[in-house]
């Protein structure tokens, strides 16, 4: 009787559908528990703050910039959308400065921090602190070596390209070698449109 019951194609399909549904439920449960774990890890561990590579996937500093009023702009990459709101504290020989940080409303993995300019060649300890309870989220030791004007050089075919190594800012961490600032792809732009 059992054989007859399970011999029909419909029954086999039903069983397969059931197995798939169970697999989906297990996957969903796993996803939810991974999310919980991730937020707990963020809650407990102090992350190391460093400069981003070409394809950032961890918390890191994308670039430093400046404005006409000698304020420092710091661009950060935050991989986890649920990363708590934070502010920066930069400790230098001359003292400590607090930098307000704001997540981008549309792209919450991009954070912009803004505050007092840092002197060149000054070593600084950069800390990320949670806005809610001032908990230390991440820290790193960095030195701002130079802030150069960004220049574009004409390639031999007249196509503007970013000169290799011409970065707006360079910085070094005490433990790491300098990494080039954010690079844009050096590909010729489409002509005609929609390549």
């Amino acid at each position: 009787m059992i054989q007859q019951r399970f011999a029909s194609r419909k029954s086999i399909l039903l069983v397969l559908a059931g197995i798939l549904l169970l697999a989906l439920l297990a996957l969903t449960w796993r996803i939810i528990s991974l999310q919980k774990e991730a937020s707990e890890i963020v809650a407990e561990k102090v992350l190391k703050l460093r400069y981003c590579g070409a394809n950032p996937d961890e918390l890191c500093i994308l670039s430093f910039g400046r404005d006409a009023e000698e304020n420092l702009a710091v661009s950060l990459f935050v991989p986890d959308r649920k990363f708590p709101d934070f502010y920066l504290k930069i400790k230098r020989i001359t003292g400590e400065s607090v930098y307000e940080c704001e997540k981008n409303k549309e792209v919450s993995t991009s954070v912009f921090c803004y505050g007092e300019m840092v002197n060149l060649q000054e070593k600084m300890e950069v800390s990320l602190l949670a806005e809610k309870d001032d908990r230390l989220l991440a820290a790193g030791n960095l030195t701002l070596n130079a802030i150069l004007l960004s220049t574009q050089s004409q390639g031999s075919d007249g196509t503007p390209t970013l000169a290799a190594g011409a970065t707006a800012e360079t910085l070094t961490s005490t433990a790491e070698t300098p990494i080039a600032a954010t690079l844009t792809p050096q590909l010729s732009y489409p002509n005609p449109s929609y390549p």
């Binding site: 670039s63 430093f64 910039g65 400046r66 404005d67 006409a68 702009a73 661009s75 802030i147 004007l149 960004s150 970013l162 970065t167 707006a168 800012e169 600032a181 954010t182 690079l183 844009t184």
Partner: peptide, 10 residues
Amino acid sequence: LPVFSLPAVK
């Protein structure tokens, strides 16, 4: 007059 600069934007 430059008022803001980052590596990829001015």
